[in-house]
C-alpha cells in the first residue's frame, strides 16, 4: 500500500505521461449509491433489517455479477436486471418474490438520488489536467457511460474507450489497445477497482496498473500493481503514479 507521503507535484516529474481510469466504482461512486438503495430495500422489506448492510451488499454484488454480461448486451434491461436482483435477494432470505418489484422501485429511487464521484476525483483531475493525458476505459453501454461522463463533468478526455463502442470487454487486450491508440501513447498507467478487469487487463498489454482497493480486499499479487485505498489525499495518487512506472 502506498503511504500518503506528501511530495509536491511539479510539472514534468511523472514517469507516466498518460493515465487511464475505469469509470464505475473508480471515478463514479456507484457503491455509495447502491448502499443508499439497499437501505431503502431494508425499509420496504423490514425482515432484512436484521441483515447487516455489508452482508446485503455482498449478496447484491453476487446478483450483479450473475447478470453482468447480460446487462452489457441487449438481453437484459436495467429494469429487468434490478427486478432479478431483488428476486434473488428475496429468495436468499426466504421472502416472497412478489415483493421484489416494490423493493426494486425503492432501490432505484434512492440509488439515483445519491450520485457522487469517488472522493478526491475532482481534485485529482484538477491536478492531472494539462500535465498528463487522461482517458477512460469502461465496460458498459455507450449511451449510459457517455451520459455519466457528461453529468459528472468529466469531459473533455483524451481517450474514451467504451466496451460497446469498441466491441471488446475488459479485460480483453483490444479495449486497452484502442485507448492507447486514442491517447497516441505506447503506454499509460491504468487505475481501476477491478483486479480482473483493470489490473490484469492492463498489465496483460504491458501497461502499469494501480489498483483502487477502497474496501481493503486482499491483494492477489502485489508485484502486479501499486495499491491505493482511495484518492485522498491527492498527493497519494500522484506518488503512486510515479511509483507505478519505476
Amino acid at each position: 500500500m502506498v503511504e500518503a507521503v506528501y511530495q509536491p507535484m511539479q510539472k514534468g516529474t511523472f514517469v507516466s505521461t498518460a493515465v487511464l481510469f475505469d469509470l464505475d466504482d473508480t471515478l463514479i461512486d456507484l457503491q455509495y449509491a447502491r448502499r443508499h438503495g439497499l437501505r431503502a430495500v431494508q425499509e420496504i422489506l423490514p425482515e432484512l433489517k436484521r441483515v447487516p448492510l455489508e452482508e446485503l451488499e455482498l449478496v447484491h454484488d453476487e446478483e450483479l455479477k450473475a447478470n453482468y454480461l447480460r446487462t452489457l448486451g441487449d438481453s437484459l434491461s436495467d429494469e429487468e436486471a434490478r427486478l432479478e436482483h431483488m428476486c434473488g435477494i428475496c429468495r436468499r432470505y426466504g421472502l416472497e418474490t412478489s415483493r421484489a418489484a416494490d423493493a426494486a422501485d425503492a432501490y432505484v429511487r434512492e440509488q439515483q438520488s445519491n450520485p457522487r464521484l469517488v472522493p478526491g476525483v475532482e481534485e485529482l483531475f484538477e491536478a492531472l489536467r494539462g500535465r498528463m493525458k487522461i482517458g477512460v476505459v469502461t465496460n458498459g453501454r455507450s449511451r449510459y457511460q457517455r451520459d455519466k461522463l457528461e453529468f459528472f463533468d468529466l469531459l473533455p478526455l483524451e481517450a474514451v474507450a467504451i466496451s460497446e463502442e469498441v466491441g471488446a470487454v475488459k479485460p480483453d487486450p483490444e479495449i486497452f489497445r484502442y485507448a492507447l491508440a486514442e491517447l497516441g501513447e505506447q503506454k499509460a498507467t491504468m487505475i481501476g477497482d477491478s483486479w480482473e478487469h483493470d489490473v490484469l487487463g492492463a498489465t496483460g498489454v504491458g501497461m502499469d496498473a494501480i489498483w483502487l482497493n477502497r474496501y481493503r480486499r486482499p491483494c492477489p499479487d502485489p508485484s502486479l500493481a501499486v495499491e491505493i485505498a482511495g484518492f485522498e489525499p491527492v498527493e497519494n495518487i500522484l506518488q503512486a503514479l510515479k511509483t507505478s512506472s519505476q
Partner: peptide, 11 residues
Amino acid sequence: VNIVPSIAGGA
C-alpha cells in the same frame, strides 16, 4: 422540484 439523474450501472 427534484432533479434526479438517471445514472445507470450498479443496477
